[in-house]
Design a protein around this nucleic acid. Structure first.
Length: 329
DNA sequence: AATATTGACAACCGCCCTTCC
DNA sequence: CGGAAGGGCGGTTGTCAATAT
């Protein structure tokens, strides 16, 4: 037994709006307002449209000061930042971008921005130089041109003092098919396990690979997928986790190296002894958003937002999970 | 030149929440 | 307090244009 429809679909017009309809709706709302009742509005305005359709048309297209197309880099960063932190809550994201509608942002994300990330196009915050422990020295990264462009000189590091370490813990991602050490050969410097290229001594900080996906379109691991690890049979299991505050963040970025099909990350602040992790442990972190948002910022943001149904209705755990991604450290 | 594929975006659908009676 | 109605939202679909084959 479903809910009764808001209007008689047989008697209302559907599909693209004509300029005449737009004019009618715009003129009516500018003159009378919405009256707080969208269902009754079309009849009053002389439109053969569903009230919901009128509302959408007004909010997404007709209301004043709407911006369409040409998202700026700054807007990209804001969208990415908020998406990482709160997920696909487009109305909240839209509230931070004057003139943008949730529908616009949603479409932009789905058609362009997501692909932009997947396609390794640079986002400015990826280029931020991390600080590295003194035990690491900078190496010229043997990266593909696109990855090198993206990550500059901050991708690969060679430990000057390497302590052999064998982890019994299965990494939560697939190891690269060749050239890199197997699980039992994971080598660590200090207490930080890394993958080590056995030929060059270059070490990589691997983070999760999106094995939950059927294809190889790896991308930044935010969202709930990041809360599971992938075992050899492809199944996912939840892992213990510890939340590291933003200020304590270790920091990592990832990209898909198309050649070896795994993700690399770089780290900062890992020389903070108090925050050192035991080798092979799982950790989670609150992602440091490029604009400096963290969960508290977002909550604050949300509470002051004019949008209605926002955070209080959100499953806190789910939201927090959305705000994190996990990596092997 | 014809057809298939892809991309962009407007619009719709249906669920959930809030408000009102 | 409970149910109905309306609003808001995220996900999905439809349509059209551009591009590739």
């Amino acid at each position: 037994m479903g809910r009764a429809p808001c209007c008689d679909k047989a008697s209302v017009k559907r599909g693209p709006w004509s300029p005449e309809e737009d004019t009618k709706l715009k003129e009516y709302i500018e003159k009378h307002g919405t009256g707080g009742n969208w269902i009754a509005l079309p009849q009053k305005a002389g439109l053969k449209r569903c009230g919901k359709s009128c509302r959408l048309r007004w909010l997404n297209y007709l209301r004043p000061n709407i911006k369409h197309g040409d998202f700026s880099d700054e807007e990209d960063r804001i969208i990415c930042s908020l998406y990482v932190n709160i997920g696909s809550r487009w109305s909240i994201i839209a509230a931070q971008l004057p003139g943008r509608t949730d529908n616009d942002i949603k479409n932009y994300w789905n058609t362009k921005l997501k692909k932009k990330l997947m396609g390794l196009l640079p986002l400015s915050h990826h280029r931020k130089q991390p600080s590295f422990p003194s035990s690491f020295t900078l190496q010229n990264p043997p990266l593909s041109p696109s990855a090198h462009q993206l990550y500059g000189e901050y991708c690969t590091y060679t430990p000057t003092t390497t302590t052999s370490f064998t982890s019994n813990i299965e990494p939560p991602f697939s190891l690269p098919s060749s050239n890199y050490a197997s699980t039992s050969d994971i080598t660590t410097s200090v207490s930080h396990p890394v993958y080590q290229n056995q030929d060059s001594m270059q070490c990589y900080y691997p983070i999760m690979r999106d094995n939950s996906s059927n294809n190889n379109n790896n991308m930044l691991m935010f969202g709930s997928e990041g809360s599971c690890s992938t075992s050899s049979d492809g199944s996912c299991t939840n892992q213990g986790r510890e939340i590291i505050k933003q200020e304590e963040r270790i920091g990592c970025h990832s990209y898909n190296n198309n050649n070896d099909n795994f993700m690399l990350s770089h780290s900062n602040n890992i020389n903070d002894g108090e925050k050192s992790c035991a080798a092979g442990e799982w950790f989670s972190q609150t992602l440091l958003a490029p604009l400096g948002y963290d969960i508290e910022d977002i909550k604050q943001l949300i509470s002051s937002s004019s949008s209605t149904t926002i955070f209080n209705n959100v499953d806190e755990n789910k939201t927090e999970e959305k705000a994190m991604y996990y990596y092997y450290y």
